[in-house]
Each structure stands twice: as structure tokens, then as C-alpha cells.
Design a protein around this nucleic acid. Structure first.
Lengths: 107, 107
DNA sequence: CAATCACATACCCGATTGGCTATGTGTTAT
DNA sequence: ATAACACATAGCCAATCGGGTATGTGATTG
């Protein structure tokens, strides 16, 4: 019953975490220390947040020597778009129903 | 500094709450009692969730006698789409940068 | 006008969350 | 070889959260 949207919405609900993700979208590959300044929290906290983003599939990491580069996972946004589209779709369906209803009433 | 996305992502991060919103998108105007069955939680909890959704601008309520009809707020999804589009945009910009960089290197 | 209904509010409680510091582990620089 | 660095993990704590029950309030029904 645990939808993929669950982890994504959950992950993005925290401002600090969403900030990290936005940063990665904007600037691409960045190390943990690189993200540290803008985040405004301690390094362990940044690491913890990145782990949550990674679990949600929003972020990928790549080891290189003693550095860990994080980058935003483009396809993750797809899930969000799909869900939003589905919701909008329900709307249109309802209008369609209303439409056919009105047409039926018209006869 | 509190973005409108904050409340929206936060509101949708809880499955029960997202369930209520999805239900309202699908079926349109519904009373609290009408939402009660599918939600699987007590009436006060549903009311509390609806209040949070309302504060986030995801839902509107309309009083009618002793009934309160709730409905999904279509434009709220717009905020979500905009944010997602912005994130995707950053991506394309980065590719553009890479593109111009490669062209520059090519000369 | 009494009972019921629809809903909101108030309060309580255990679980989760987001922050911190301290520390461990592997890597590079000296 | 040692020190410094980059990062992750562990453990702690106050605050928030999501659920519950009890109760208040206004509208409707009998």
C-alpha cells in the first residue's frame, strides 16, 4: 500500500531537504561539503537528509576518492508529474461527466 | 522564507491526507462524513486533516446547513507543476551550458 | 423543545522527526 | 607514518505529528 509518492512527498516536505534537492537540480554534481554552506545545518544532518532523498529516489551518489558527489535524479520528478497529471485528469473526467449529463439533459 | 511549496508538500506527505485530497479530486464536493469511510480514521482526525489541506490551499470548504462540503482546489496543483517545471528547467539550463561549453571547445 | 446529526475544537499520548555532538572509517596530503 | 580531510553512523533530545476520546456548537428532525 506504500506508494512511491509517499517517500517523494515526504522527502520534499522538509525545507532543508527540498533546498538540497533544488541546489542539486541547479548546480548538478556536488560534494557533501559543497552543499554544507547553503544548507545551514551541520554536516551529519546534511548527510542524513541526503540519505533520505536517496532512499526516495530523488538523488544518486557517486564515490570518488574521499569525495562523495551527489546529483539529482531526473526521473524522480516524473513520478510527481504523473501524480499531478492524474489528479488533473480526475478533474477533467468530472467535467466530462457533467458535460455528457448536460447534453443528455438537453435532449 | 516560507515558500508556498512548503505547506503543499507537507500536506501531501501524509498518506491519509493525500488520500483525502485524491478522493476530492476524483469525486468532487463531499461532506466530512462522506469522506469518513475511505479515510479509515475517526471524524475528528479527518476534520483536522482537512484543515491542514485547507491551510495549504489544496482544499476549499463550503457551508450548507449542517453540512460542510469540501472540494479540491484546482489551482493548488499549479504550484506543484510550476515547481517541478522549474527543477526540470535547471536541468536543461545545465545541458545548455554544457552544450555551449562543448561548442566553445570545438572551435 | 428534545433528540439527533454534522462538524469542529480541546486535550492527551506514543511515535517520529530534525537538529545537535561525538565518533568511526576510509582517503589524501605532508 | 601522521595529520588532516570527507563523509557516515550512533546516540541524544526537544518539538512536532498523527492518532485517539471527550465535548462543544449549530442545524435539522421528530
Amino acid at each position: 500500500m506504500t506508494e512511491p509518492q509517499d517517500a517523494i512527498f515526504r522527502a520534499l516536505s522538509d525545507p532543508t531537504r527540498r533546498g538540497l534537492f533544488e541546489r542539486l537540480c541547479r548546480d548538478g554534481d556536488t560534494t557533501v561539503v559543497g552543499l554544507l554552506g547553503e544548507a545551514g545545518v551541520s554536516q551529519p544532518v546534511v548527510s542524513k537528509h541526503l540519505k533520505i532523498l536517496k532512499t526516495a529516489g530523488l538523488v544518486r551518489d557517486r564515490q570518488q576518492g574521499r569525495y562523495t558527489y551527489y546529483s539529482a535524479e531526473r526521473d524522480a520528478l516524473r513520478t510527481l508529474v504523473d501524480w499531478t497529471t492524474e489528479m488533473s485528469g480526475f478533474w477533467n473526467d468530472r467535467f466530462d461527466d457533467l458535460d455528457t449529463l448536460l447534453k443528455r439533459m438537453d435532449q
